[in-house]
Write a protein that binds this DNA or RNA. Structure first.
Lengths: 293, 293
DNA sequence: CACACTTACGATATTCGTAAGGATT
DNA sequence: AATCCTTACGAATATCGTAAGTGTG
């Protein structure tokens, strides 16, 4: 029994005519006749009782008809569904991104993606850097956007760009005139930064300790938006990835390049090394990469 | 997409090895490789991510796997089920038979059928002659057993044998010595027979009226068993199809050939002319015919 | 006699197995 | 070096369309 034979059976059963069914199936009537004969032989009995003049279902054919119709319909569904996934007319892609990225660059990138593939659903997990790595590892998401993690053979990291940290100061700060600032310039102001599990905080401390410097934290938050608004209100200064520059401006703070130490971190896409991306995820990855050049 | 390809896909997805799957499918590994390739090309994307050393499902392949398994399973079910019907290892046949037949000859015939085809279910409708014809006409049953009905092009009648009516008398009747009796012999006793819608009653009246004779009914019943017991108790005499001889004996009555008038009626199988029998019904018809020779 | 299904037959396509090639552990 | 998948190619098989055959209304 082949799918072709089953389609032929359904067509003949519906039209009760080999000639008409042949037309519908785009095949000659003798070929159709042979096909039905092969089906009957394969099953071990007749499905149609036919004189040269009239065609009718046998009781067994009658029993097969609804089953055959269902099988063919399900078959077509599965096939069509899969084809739509491959042609990006259906699907869903889950990604995780650290908040600084998810809240700044990502939305406009997703706009591009959605414009191009409006039928693909997107699930974004806005979680801290470490959780991004975990979610990729656990395959909760296909794609993660993070700072480059410690090298791990089970993960693949694709650089999108280098992010250089910048200082954030109030609009009325004297530092506002500088084209760049050093850590010493900032130390005279209360320092506001993210709470501990945050990668930004950790990377900041690491970079400073290399230069023998120390972080004196006056205030902490775990929301970038809060930090921005605190700095904007004149409560103190901060250092954030350049990703956040626009957000900081919108929150009323001002950003200045940080010259010493230069804190530069690769940001990119993280995937499981041993698992291929879905076509949808690959399409998203392609767009993210393309928009990061 | 063909059923063969889908089976190949399932096998490879389960073993994650073209070599092993090839063995299971009884085909060479290169042929399997080509088959999967053809499937992937047809669907428009990869289902397996494979290096020369390891095979893995792509996300799309992963999505297809349960669907493919279900499709293949349903396919096999339908195919197997139909094959079993054709080989008489599954099925049901519905027949209708007039009470005189259903209660006498039929049971032993069904025993033969059941012995030969124990998996075929049988539904017997024990109804009066006219209803048998109706049930065949309405396709409530595939097969009917009746006296030959008025010829009707939409029905097919296959003679099983001729039934000759016999007289039924009490064991202590003086008639018991006769090798045959005439209507006149019976008329001296109270006559017991079936009620009006019954074909036996109608045919009896018809036959008598041809010879200018008349039926004086002393008692009526609509059960043959009741008649038998009434006659057996000495309440009167009756005339029944020879079908019922054994039953009458068991009920304590005695049967004697009826010589004048001779009432002879063809009994046979009735089917719809334009509808083929199921293999199960045909098998039953064959056995009924064979046992009637 | 015309129509509709079946059979016959030659051509085309598809499928398969063997052999050779390439990549990974 | 061994193993496993892919590509190449020739052979076997299957499928299809045209043409001829057959039975029915």
């Amino acid at each position: 029994m082949t799918i072709k034979q089953l389609r032929a059976f359904v067509a003949v059963a519906q039209t009760l005519s080999f000639a008409q069914a042949g037309e519908r199936l785009y095949m000659s009537q003798p070929a159709l006749s042979l096909s039905i004969k092969a089906l009957e032989d394969g099953l071990g009995g007749r499905l149609f009782s036919r004189t040269t003049r009239t065609v009718n279902l046998t009781p067994e054919g009658h029993a097969l008809f609804p089953l055959a119709r269902r099988l063919v319909a399900e078959w077509d569904n599965v096939e069509d569904n899969l084809r739509q996934h491959f042609t990006l007319r259906r699907g869903r892609v889950s990604i995780a991104a650290m908040p600084s990225f998810a809240g700044n660059r990502l939305p406009s990138m997703l706009m591009h993606f959605r414009e191009r593939y409006p039928a693909i659903g997107i699930t974004v997990h806005d979680v801290i850097n470490e959780q991004v790595v975990e979610m990729v590892r656990n395959r909760q998401v296909e794609l993660g956007i993070t700072f480059e993690p410690a090298s791990d053979l089970s993960m693949k990291f694709k650089l999108l760009y280098l992010d250089r940290f910048v200082a954030v100061v109030p609009r009325d700060s004297p530092l506002i005139e500088c084209t760049k600032v050093c850590w010493e310039d900032l130390q005279t102001y209360p320092f506001i930064t993210l709470q501990r599990p945050s990668a930004v905080r950790v990377m900041l401390e690491e970079s400073l300790s290399i230069g023998g410097q120390k972080l004196n934290v006056a205030m902490e938050s775990h929301q970038l938006a809060t930090i921005g608004r605190m700095v904007g209100s004149g409560l103190g200064v901060s250092v954030v990835p350049s990703l956040c520059i626009q957000q900081m401006h919108e929150l009323g703070a001002h950003c200045i390049p940080l010259a010493n130490p230069v804190i530069e971190r690769p940001i990119g896409m993280l995937t499981k090394a041993d698992h291929e991306l879905s076509v949808a995820a690959q399409a998203l990855a392609d767009i993210l990469e393309q928009l990061s050049v």
